[in-house]
Write a protein that binds this DNA or RNA. Sequence first.
DNA 1: CTGGTATTGCAATTTCAATTGCAAATTTTG
DNA 2: CAAAATTTGCAATTGAAATTGCAATACCAG
Lengths: 299, 299
Amino acid sequence: MSSSTPEEAPATHPRLDPTGPGLDWLDDILGDTALPRAQNRVADVIIRNPQLASYAEIAEIAAHAEVNNSTVVRTAQTLGFHGWPDLQRELRSRYLVKISTEDTLVQHGEHSTPLTAALTRDIENLRLTLDANSAEDVEATIATLAAAKSILVVGHGSYAAPASVMAHLGSTMGYPISLESRAGVHLVTSTNTLGPGDVMVVINIWRSIGQMIVAAEAAHRAGATIIAISDMRRGRLATIAEHLLVVPSEGIAFFQSVTATTSVVYGLLAGMQAAHPERSRETIRRSQQLWKELGVHLD
Amino acid sequence: MSSSTPEEAPATHPRLDPTGPGLDWLDDILGDTALPRAQNRVADVIIRNPQLASYAEIAEIAAHAEVNNSTVVRTAQTLGFHGWPDLQRELRSRYLVKISTEDTLVQHGEHSTPLTAALTRDIENLRLTLDANSAEDVEATIATLAAAKSILVVGHGSYAAPASVMAHLGSTMGYPISLESRAGVHLVTSTNTLGPGDVMVVINIWRSIGQMIVAAEAAHRAGATIIAISDMRRGRLATIAEHLLVVPSEGIAFFQSVTATTSVVYGLLAGMQAAHPERSRETIRRSQQLWKELGVHLD
DNA sequence: CTGGTATTGCAATTTCAATTGCAAATTTTG
DNA sequence: CAAAATTTGCAATTGAAATTGCAATACCAG
């Protein structure tokens, strides 16, 4: 499991350590407090969209969580704050400190298109990813992957995208790796092939998708090692995961972003290649040969 | 007008590093408007503490400038904004989202795990993407997508990932959009459905994949509009493409990165949503309803 | 299945920040 | 140097956002 979260931050307002990475402090508070369903949704929205939460007003948070305004207020109060502005102040002091150490800023183009919004947001997500994962966690994850007898990557919806990249490039470099982006009976079948020595990589951002969690738990019971890539440190997935990599996923519209996840996948793949360079080299050579013979590429 | 410190006073901000990149746009506005003494103090405070100014409320700014609240409001109005919140919104969009990445990169530069390498590289890719595409190109591309009768997104291999994100989220928000990530007979069939009014989005990075180019040319001849997302400005694809968005794709190992492409896709999607907000809202609502009924999410 | 408890949503209320009218103070100009 | 014009500060007003009381709903235990 992840190696973060020092003990010293109790449930009572931790107004200390503004240097700590990520939103661990909120995770800590949440760990001690059992929130009701709707309020939990609010907390999730805050953790996943810290940028939004640090300046948005209640109505916007409520909309994101699909909850009434008052629930947002009550969530803040349940967590020990006086109200939303109080929680928001804390959020800002924790979060904004990180994103602007000094008044270094880049002036870019005049017009703000959706594209620049998307790019700047994703740059920020990547930067946060740097902070959110320790070198040890990453190395340990890569070691597990490199030693795996077989690897199954699971991701649904948008999150099938990074999953497919991982499976595609992983097998291109000779790893026994496959993708399961479907649910239902397919997921069952794929999961049942796993046992000790096998690894299941669960890419699960945004809300937990029930079937994925259940499948991961089944694989875990069967002896497989679970690697989770998620935007949350807590939850059922985090519990059973041997390794957990945290990726921010805040997007610009109604959807979350998988950009940081994709980049993390590349990091893992590069590590996997370094772990078995000869295997990769050989397989890639053969692939290129085959591409050539099939005339896949033009030039 | 004009006596003691007339035109130079607004343009010169004493403690602001003149070499560093700053709030040029504010400087520009200030250059045109001669502000009275107290209001000038307010402007200085804003320029020196953009982070503070982007979320603080009037009273705090007033305190920093040692000025009455109303002066802050009037400064904003003198600068052409409706009031303080209006100016603050602008500040946020200009400053908060665009923070320099350099300090974090320095912090993590020492011990480079594959993950930091991947993230750093992708941050650079995203920054290059900012420069590589003009606002006009982007807006024109979005307009084309928003007006399309139907949209087919084509991408193979790793590049199927951003393609699937686009198709998935696009249809989530009600667009008639579909994905073709397979070659051969499938590609032929999909391509043949296209005609005038239809749009084909070709995501083609790295080498040109023969079948994709040929398919795009066929669609083009049939009257469909081609949108290309590529890492090259020239070539057969660029020739037939109505719109071309350029994305750097340098990766860290033997593979190319689709991170920037993914981010660009998000930008396009956000623009598409803005173009048909009502359609999106309705479709998303129905999706959420269905998710609920199917019990997809755990929460 | 039923009664009790906890949670949520709605709407009224309260609170607080932003703005503006007006008078005092400052600066500018003849 | 004095009168006009501009700017500023104070205090009242406006407006909007956050909170809370209450009823409906969902959840849970027996």
